[in-house]
Amino acid sequence: MSEWTFIALLLVTAFIFPAIPIVAGTLLGPRKPNEMKNSTYECGVETVGDTWVQFKVQYYIFALVFLVFDIELIFLYPWAVAYNQLPLFGIVAGVVFIITLAEALVYAWRKGALEWL
């Protein structure tokens, strides 16, 4: 538990540290807003339409494939820690797990889901 005290303190400190100069910046810096200055910056051109443009589904697929690999690590890291003491059977079980994931990657690749269009 005590080892997490350090992390908690560090994260809180790290959160407060950059907040101080931002506050100082608002106090020390000039504050003269006007309509032009506060408008959205688009290289001098007025913004056309909504900012929340619709994105293509490609982003979603990449995020999904990443999610699959991210969840994989829940299972694989404990296996990697125990690896030194595992019998051949245990190692092969882990390898089968990885190969199943590799299959998923191959599927995505062959289906063209990994092409950036």
């Binding site: 699959v68 969840i71 994989e72 299972f75 890291y77 404990p78 296996w79 990697a80 820690v81 125990a82 690896y83 003491q85 595992l86 059977f89 245990g90 190692i91 079980a93 882990g94 089968v96 797990f97 199943t100 994931l101 299959e103 998923a104 599927y107």
Partner: peptide
């Protein structure tokens, strides 16, 4: 211990492999 339990018969070998198929 968790890692060992994932890959032994007495532990969670079947759920472990099924999880990978589920992800696939």
């Amino acid at each position: 211990q968790l890692g060992r339990a994932f890959v032994t018969h007495q532990g969670f070998l079947l759920p472990f492999e099924v999880a990978s198929v589920l992800l696939l």
